[in-house]
């Protein structure tokens, strides 16, 4: 018991020191993070990922059950809408802790995807966002840019394979670990990697090739 007490004290001190160190780093050597951009390689602009993490306003079991019921009640409209967007490979809705999550893989420009998303099922999504803490302005169709910006803020940051490309102003590779700590301190939700079994192919090409219509 005494051992456990000292371990707790040590962990507390360790976290406190980490917070102090991070605060010091942030002041002494602030990082500039490059947002993942567009690629000049055409195939790299297919099968893009969106990992939307939306904290629920009510994160109790009751609040989570309400979110689960809302998704179930609208699932047909959501799936029809996703099909009509035309550029979506996969999408799924998860409850992870107190967060309502939507993960999807789509082709092309993020903003075009979300805009098409608003056009075909924005009203359904608006009703779901009533459950979310700090929701975007509603309805999305009258606030499309604000809605897209909100989605972008709640989309997990995607860490590329090449860590150095994230920090274009970092000249010393030995600082990469520190830079990564600062980045993760700023962005709690990140995507660490992605794999595709058929890279560089659009959903319409897969559907066309498989004779599914597009």
């Amino acid at each position: 018991m005494v051992k456990g007490f000292f371990r707790s004290i040590w962990t507390f001190l360790q976290h406190l020191l980490e917070r102090i160190l991070i605060a010091f780093w942030r002041r002494a050597a602030p990082i500039k993070v490059a947002e993942p951009g567009y690629s000049t390689v055409l195939a790299d602009n297919l099968q893009m990922h969106m990992n939307l993490v939306m904290p629920l306003a009510d994160q109790t079991a009751v609040g989570r059950a309400r979110a689960a019921q809302a998704i179930a009640a609208n699932i047909d409209e959501l799936f029809t809408g996703l099909n009509n967007v035309g550029t979506v490979h996969f999408a799924r809705f998860d409850l992870i802790g107190g967060n309502l999550c939507m993960y999807s893989v789509f082709d092309g420009d993020f903003r075009a995807y979300i805009r098409d998303f608003i056009c075909v099922f924005g009203s359904v999504f608006d009703s779901l966002l009533g459950l979310v803490a700090d929701p975007p302005p509603s309805p999305s169709a009258l606030n499309p840019e604000a809605f897209i910006d909100w989605i972008h803020r709640h989309d997990s940051f995607q860490i590329p394979r090449d860590l150095t490309s994230l920090f274009p102003e970092e000249k010393n590779l030995e600082n990469l670990s520190r830079d990564l700590v600062l980045l993760l301190d700023e962005k709690p939700n990140v995507q660490l990697g992605r794999f595709s079994g058929y890279p560089g192919v659009s959903v319409a090409q897969i559907r066309h090739g498989a004779g599914l219509g597009w």
Partner: peptide
Amino acid sequence: YDWTNLGLQDPRITGSN
């Protein structure tokens, strides 16, 4: 982006400029 440079509007031209 979507149409001129990526050809996303039709699977038969996707990936061509």
